[in-house]
Amino acid sequence: MRTRARSLLPLAVAGVLLTACGESGSSGSSGAGASATASGDACAPVAGDQLVVLEDDQQLQNADNVVPAVNMATAQANPALLPALDAVSAAMTTAELIELNGAVDLQRQNAEDVAAAWVEENVDAAALQQGSGPIVVGGANFTESTILADVYADVLTAAGFDASVREVGNRELYLPALISGSEIQVFPEYLSTATEFLNRQVNGSTAEPVASGDVQATLTALRPLAEQVGLVFGRPSEAADQNAFAVTRAFADELGVSTLSELADACGDGSLVLGGPTECPDRPFCQPGLEETYGLQFAEFRELDAGGPLTKAALQQGEVSIGLVFSSDGALAQ
């Protein structure tokens, strides 16, 4: 034990140092705007603190909206359960999810307090149908899932249930538990991710993907799959945690763009520098998708991380013009 815990600290320190290297060290090759592409520099990176997401107007990304997943037997036995969770979906937006994540991840507030304050402000407890009995809400071990599980539990408590939160591990383990319903009965899921997980479970690992960027179409595909395994999904909220492409506000203002299509129109000269995870140049959701769906052209691809500190720092310091982030990241500007 002692050796393990000792080795953790140096590891963590190394992590910090590596992060620091990524932030400052990559400036060695930052002459990106002036590099080989002689076609122009209209869309060269612009440094700035605030990051904004460009709207995915052609729906390149799967819709990963937050949606309540409930054990079917529990939902049927407690008719007040789904309406209470749908009340959360009705009030939750991506902007608010960003704010909640930021309160915990950046301002270091307690997730339970943040969730309680949001419910207090956004859900009319008096209007909820009343139920009763114990309900366990599962939450995965990351900030957003913890907050959403706390929000669900608070709303269910307001609706008369005896709700508690249980921390769980990987989806491969908690989804079977949700289906069996003995240990957890409710989970804040993500629409497309859950759909594809159940699609592979029901139709085999080589099943044709059925999730898409269209929320309603994905929900229509999800419902029969869920019914087959014994789950019920509530109403998807507007809030989504999915792949998104961010630029600095300074960059967006300078070009006057707010969607990826507008970016493609403004950046015909191929001077964009893209930052993302290692697999980005090969994955349809990343560079190939941007090129084929939007007709964007890139001067360069910079290998960073999947929406982590490296990508955000590279954007803010003007190393890349556009980078892959997650749409509900607490660091995104409102």
Binding site: M1, R6, L9, V104, D105, R108, F142, P309, G330
Partner: peptide
Amino acid sequence: NANFYRAEIVTGAVGCV
């Protein structure tokens, strides 16, 4: 998973030791 919350990580690690 909470944006590298050092106090939480250290609390867990030191607690183990």
